[in-house]
Design a protein around this nucleic acid. Sequence first.
DNA 1: GTCTATATTGCGATAGAC
DNA 2: GTCTATCGCAATATAGAC
Lengths: 204, 204
Amino acid sequence: MDKNDLRNKLVSISTRLFSERGLNGVSIREISKAAGVSISMISYHFGGKEGLYSSVLQEQFSGFEHIEEINKVDSDALSKIEAYIRWIIVRHRDNPYLLRFYTSELTNPTQFFPLIVQPAIGKVIQILVHIIEEGISTNKFRKDLNPVDTVLAMAGMVTYYFLSTLATQELINHSPERDEVLVRHYMDIFTKGILSSFPSGNAE
Amino acid sequence: MDKNDLRNKLVSISTRLFSERGLNGVSIREISKAAGVSISMISYHFGGKEGLYSSVLQEQFSGFEHIEEINKVDSDALSKIEAYIRWIIVRHRDNPYLLRFYTSELTNPTQFFPLIVQPAIGKVIQILVHIIEEGISTNKFRKDLNPVDTVLAMAGMVTYYFLSTLATQELINHSPERDEVLVRHYMDIFTKGILSSFPSGNAE
DNA sequence: GTCTATATTGCGATAGAC
DNA sequence: GTCTATCGCAATATAGAC
């Protein structure tokens, strides 16, 4: 087998296993067995279990580099927000493992958080903050918004939809066919809020 | 030492350790050493490591039973939503470990998820859905809201604020003194959205 | 580059003394 | 109810053959 074939195979297999049970929940024995190679290959190619995990993490967060795509379109702040919502949904649809590494590193960071995870998340937040600021300065968005809080509110809405899947699968359909409805719904809530457009006196 | 003293001590110490490194990241050797007792005490009192983890989980999610408090006040749907936001903030402030068990069980469920975690989360979501439905039927909220999606959007906003702490501590002040500002801000976004109240034509 | 075999350490669980 | 001592097994890592 080609050298890179084996490296890729080990990364791909351990991505699934690490995402399911965490760094400490999987042994290199199990990984090498699943890959059909000797356990010593992990030390040889990655310098050990943590080296393998670091490679997995690097691959998982490499996609965050492309967040700038949502800015490329020549559009206003609102369209960029919609582009972000679509972008994050596509990321989770394409890679069902990402969210687990994401939450695991945020709540129980490994030594690789500062070098791999923090910069990736930081870049996304930075770009989103600029979009909100742009919306405020062009009078599209309310002047009293705190940009960072607003970004977290938006990112939280979308992220939590995926995070809560296991607890809400009996309540709503989480299949991708409903994603378009979801985008519209979240855009509506985030831009207009939930209040009825009737005058807000006591209506009952 | 009294029997319950030791049980409580073991639960309290392992709550911190399990939350920091997960079920598989902590050994009962380390827990018993930190508690200053013999390793055999864990098997004796809890039937093993998993039994201890189960007790920890049970304690962590027992507080969810009191979610009904937010309904007790004789108030409209909007006030109940504000009560929920405050309630969830207080929960995380009072117990910094909760979020880790919460996300860990949602993304990497153990055998205890169905019996301990799912019912606790399910109860909260159910009550929140009723509040949204109440708001819709009294004409306070928009008629086209999907109640479950709306609940997840709201819960996500607040939860993600805590989840993202590690990645955003350089950007915003996460100290409890700012919680009141946060409640106002999230209520504003969730009810009115982010759009400026100026007519939404091209304002630049 | 990949294997087998092994060294060493740590794991969870429990038997048996007190 | 708590301890010490130990069993049996699985962990990571590596030396050395091919």
